[in-house]
Amino acid sequence: MRILKMDSKYLKEFLESLRMFGKLYGPIWKRDVLTHDHVENVDDLVLDGEHTLIPVKKLFHPKRFNTMRFNEEGFTPNYSMFEKRVLIGAHPCDIHSLLRLDEVFLTDPADPYYKGLRENTAIIGFSCLPTENSLCRSTGTDIVESGFDLFFVDLEDIYLVWVGSSLGHDMILEKEEFFDENVTHADIQKYIQWREMRNDMFKKSFNFRDMPDIMELSYNSEIWDYFAEKCLSCGSCTMVCPTCNCYTLTDVFDVTNKTEGRRERVWDSCMFVDYSLVAGPHNFRGKRADRLKLWYTHKLKAFGGEYGRPACIGCGRCVDTCPVDINVLTIAEAFTSCEVPAK
């Protein structure tokens, strides 16, 4: 992969130049909450590594939208959200989350909405430093090798820039004068020191690689009941998880006509009581303990069985968000210390 060097003073002008490739999106502050949204002014971009409350999935798997209009003749899909976009400031964990979501949404038959949004969006990744609850070193998602068009590593006075696609190459070509092929020994040393400094900054970790087995062994554990008594079933963990992707579909009929309407798609959560409710009515996971067990065994084990590796990408948002401290850390700790015999 081609790696270039850019003086930090060119950053703003370079990011501004990306507008010719699409509408700019990235993390900006809105009502005191960091959110991925349209960027009017590149000075508003927050590229220091802080996490958005809702992860980047929302730009590819919209929270709530109309998928189609239908009538007796058939249906017309709603692809009005497709536009050329350039997403700036994706962290390594964000990029990993998208690669994980690709497995779910792009496997044949692909989800046309996700596919359209993904194909029309360039990814400009940025390095970050760990937050209080970052776990990406535990999950092996603290660096990226693919999944971006350009990736910027911030070494203060310079950026090292990984070129990950031909589109990324075209972006560089537009401002070729900003980039230097000559990465020196000193630059490499600086990069290595930055990596070591970053590695030392992680405050928390968990035994991610042991979790598939521990989840399997703990399937009938009474520890699930302990967490179930605490869980508020608010669904926040799933909304803020970058790889949770469940949604529900509802047909909303026109008031004027019983055969016409729209189909609305909204993020759903396996923490909600009707998630596993089917005709009958039968509910496979009416109990809170069963809902929690589904989430954690899927996140830390079963997703891996289907797609090669478990779905947690270590962003730490569940640790930031759960009001009653149920998260990958507390779950990993409880099931490791109480259920699995000590080595």
């Binding site: 508020l232 669904g235 926040s236 909304m239």
Partner: peptide, 9 residues
């Protein structure tokens, strides 16, 4: 669903 669903959305 609780209020929290739309609150997070």
């Amino acid at each position: 669903h609780p209020v929290c669903h739309e609150c997070k959305l």
